[in-house]
């Protein structure tokens, strides 16, 4: 974007919002928003606190656990649906339902099933992340060109080799699914911990809110947003590398 002939850097619009935030904070217009500078100051406070380290450890643990599970189950499930029409008929409706359902409503059920602790959060992350991975994998498998499969048969490729080809051909879609799953997983981990509210970041949010430490609260929000965006950006980078090979499907 250019403004008065000057090229504006990508993040410039953020600056505008930060200034508006600062003004609202300075004039105490909305009680919930302390000035942005205060939030930044609290950032250091939050990051160095012992409870933050512990909360991040638990959060990362349950996030990776849930995401790993979602990838490990989502990709094979997507393959099954893409390759076996009967399985697709049976599962497609459910996967789509879960994809769009308000999963937060299910977290209390998980709490009853898995207790007030990390397992519930892991299940929440899993439920948030897995369905988009399933659907994208399925789409990737289904979009493989039939002539590529004919080619592999006509040159005598073994079953294992053909399977490898399906995997490679579907890789761009699978990675897109994982990227979206990662972003949804961040939602899952925060929502899960907020609802369980005695572990991880959820406990911290609870603590800051109850003591009305709004600057700390926003600092934590800022950290989580940054982490989520950075993660998504990293996978997007990886995706581009793969698409360099697979993006132009002929």
């Amino acid at each position: 974007m250019t403004l008065f002939g000057f090229r504006m850097p990508k993040m410039a619009s953020l600056l505008v919002w930060v200034i508006i935030w600062e003004i609202i904070g300075r004039f105490e217009l909305v009680m919930l928003f302390p000035p942005f500078t205060e939030v930044l100051a609290a950032l250091g406070d939050v990051v160095t606190s012992r409870s933050f380290g512990e909360a991040m450890r638990i959060t990362v643990q349950s996030y990776l656990g849930g995401l790993g599970l979602a990838i490990a189950i989502g990709i094979p499930l997507g393959f099954l649906m893409g390759l076996v029409p009967a399985a697709d008929k049976m599962l497609n409706m459910w996967v789509n339902t879960f994809l769009s359902a308000p999963l937060s409503a299910l977290v209390p059920v998980f709490m009853i099933l898995f207790g007030l602790g990390t397992p519930t959060v892991i299940v929440t992350v899993f439920m948030f992340a897995v369905w988009i991975i399933v659907l994208d994998t399925r789409a990737g498998v289904l979009s493989i060109s039939p002539s590529l499969m004919e080619m592999s048969r006509s040159f005598g490729a073994s079953r294992a080799e053909r399977f490898k080809m399906v995997l490679l051909a579907a890789l761009p879609e699978i990675l897109a699914g994982i990227r979206l799953g990662m972003i949804r997983g961040v939602k899952g981990v925060v929502i899960g911990q907020l609802l369980v509210s005695i572990i991880g970041v959820g406990a911290l949010f609870q603590l800051y809110q109850q003591n009305f430490l709004m600057a700390h609260f926003w600092a934590l929000v800022l950290i989580l947003f940054t982490i989520a965006l950075t993660l998504a950006e990293l996978v997007a980078k990886l995706e581009k590398r793969v698409e360099y090979y697979a993006g132009v499907r002929s």
Partner: peptide
Amino acid sequence: FVFQDFALMPW
């Protein structure tokens, strides 16, 4: 076999 749409592996 030589395919109409080439059937090359893009990767």
